[in-house]
Design a protein around this nucleic acid. Sequence first.
DNA 1: CGAGCCTTTGATATAGGTCAAATTGGGTGG
DNA 2: CCACCCAATTTGACCTATATCAAAGGCTCG
Lengths: 268, 268
Amino acid sequence: MHTVIPIANAAPANAAAAKPGKVNCTLCSFNRFCLPQGLADSDVARLDQIIARRRRVARDEQLFSMGASFGSLYAVRLGHFKTAQVNIHGEQQVTGFHMAGDLLGMDAIGSGSHNCSATALEDSEVCEIPFGRLQELVMQTPTLMQQFHRVLGREIQREQAIMLFRGSMRADQRMALFLLNMGARYSARGYSAASYQLRMSREDIGGYLGLTIESVSRLLARFRKQGWIKLDNRDIRILDRDSLEALSTGREPGADSGAESGAEACAA
Amino acid sequence: MHTVIPIANAAPANAAAAKPGKVNCTLCSFNRFCLPQGLADSDVARLDQIIARRRRVARDEQLFSMGASFGSLYAVRLGHFKTAQVNIHGEQQVTGFHMAGDLLGMDAIGSGSHNCSATALEDSEVCEIPFGRLQELVMQTPTLMQQFHRVLGREIQREQAIMLFRGSMRADQRMALFLLNMGARYSARGYSAASYQLRMSREDIGGYLGLTIESVSRLLARFRKQGWIKLDNRDIRILDRDSLEALSTGREPGADSGAESGAEACAA
DNA sequence: CGAGCCTTTGATATAGGTCAAATTGGGTGG
DNA sequence: CCACCCAATTTGACCTATATCAAAGGCTCG
C-alpha cells in the first residue's frame, strides 16, 4: 500500500524543482503549518531523518484508501487533497480539503486502518512519515511530542467544527463560510484570500457541505447574481466579503448590526 | 476552573463506596476501557500516581465549559456525561454521550481551551489527569504513549463516524443506530445490550442525532408501535434488534436480504 | 398537591432534495 | 486548428422528510 505511485510522464509545473527522495523540513516553506512548527532547528533535523521520502500522487490518484492498513502519516508538500468516507448510499462524504502543510492519515491512528480515503485533487506531493519512527522520535523530543499532540488535538477540533456548522447552518451560510475559510487558509499561506482557484469539483463541495451538486450550483449562482463573488468556472474572486461574512454569522445579508452570536466556526 | 465542585449532600447511590481522593486504576473495573488498557501493572501504577484526584460532578453540573482553559483530561469513573457545543442559534449540539472509562477533554489539546462543554447527566465521578504530568509520563512509558495516541485516534474516528451517519442517514435510521450503539456500549461493560436507561433527555438525543425533540418523540413512538422497543419514560428495552439493525443498515425493515452496503457506523 | 418542565401528538410550512433536460467547457483525435 | 465527445455544470419543476407552530397531557420535585 505504501509503494510510490509512478507518475506517467511530465511532473506538474509547480513540482518542477522537486526530485522525489529525501526531504528537508528546514528548507520547506510550509514548515510552520506542519509538524516542525515551533521546533528547534536541531529537532527539525532529526525529524528530517525519519521522513521516508517524498511521494508524488497524480491527480485523482489515492494516497490511501478507506480500510487500507496504516503505516505512515503524510504531510502535504505541494498540491491539494480531499479526504472522504463513502456513506451507505455509496456517495462520497468529504471530510476535508487539504493543502500544503496539512497532515493526513491521523484518522487511522486509533484502529490501525484508514477510516477515509485521501485523493489528490491535482498532481501533488507528500512527505511520508513512518508512524513507528515518529513515535520513537516523539519519545525523545519533548517539543515534538507537544506539537504532535497539538496537531492531533486540532484535528479533533476541526472535525467538531465541521459537525457544528453542518448541523446548524443553512445551506447558504455553509457555502459562504466555506468560501471565506478557503480564502483564509490561502491567506495564511501568503496567497490572496479573495481570489483563488477551487481545486475541487462541485460534487466535492457538495460532499463537504452536505448538499447536492444542484444546490451548490444554485448557491454559487445566487452569490454571483448578488455581486458577492465573481465566478469563472473554478476561479473565484470574493467581491463582497462583508456580505458573505454577515450571512455566515447569522445576521441577514441586508446587514445592519446583528443580534446573533458571532461564532467564527472553522471550516474546510 | 479546576476546583472540586462541592456536592450538596448525599452522594449518589452508586458512588457509595467512593471517597474522593486518590484513585487506583489497577482496581478500577473500567480500566480496560480507559487509558490503562494494555499497560503493564507497573505502568498503571505510575499512571495512578499522576492522577490528581477523583472529582464528583453533580447532575446538570458542568465538568468544564466551552471556552474554559485546558489543564486536565478526565476519565469518567462513574455516571454519565454529555459533551456539547452551542451553535449559532444558541441550541446545544451534542457531540457525544460518555460513560465509565471514556476520556473527556481531548478537544482542548489543540488549542488549550475547551471547544465543547461536558455536563453530567446524573451525579457522576471522574478521575482528573493533569495533562502536563500525563505528557511527562508518556515520554517515559512507550506503551502508555501508544495507548494515548490510540485514544486520541479513536476520538478522531468517533467524530468522523458521527459526521458520516448524521450526514447520510435518514432520521429513523439514525435513531435506530443510536439505540443499538448505546446497547452495544453497555454490553461491552457487562450490562444488558437490550435493556437500559436513557440517561439523557429527548432534547439531548435530538441534539446528538441532529433532530428536533418532536421528531425524536415521534420516532420513538413509531418504534414502540411497531413493537421494536418497549419504552417506559427513559427505560428502554429493545424487543426487535433485527428490525432496528435492518433499518439502520439500509435494507427496509420489511427485511429480506438487502442490497445496500452493510456499513456498521459507530454512534454515541 | 400544585407548578413547571418534559414529552407526546396533530396540523402545516419549507429548505433542500430529486428528477429531468439544456448548456458549457475542455480535451482529443483527425 | 477545428469538430466532436464526454463530463461537469447549470437551470427548471416538483416533491418529501423534517422542521415549526400549537396545544394537550404526564412526571417530578418542591
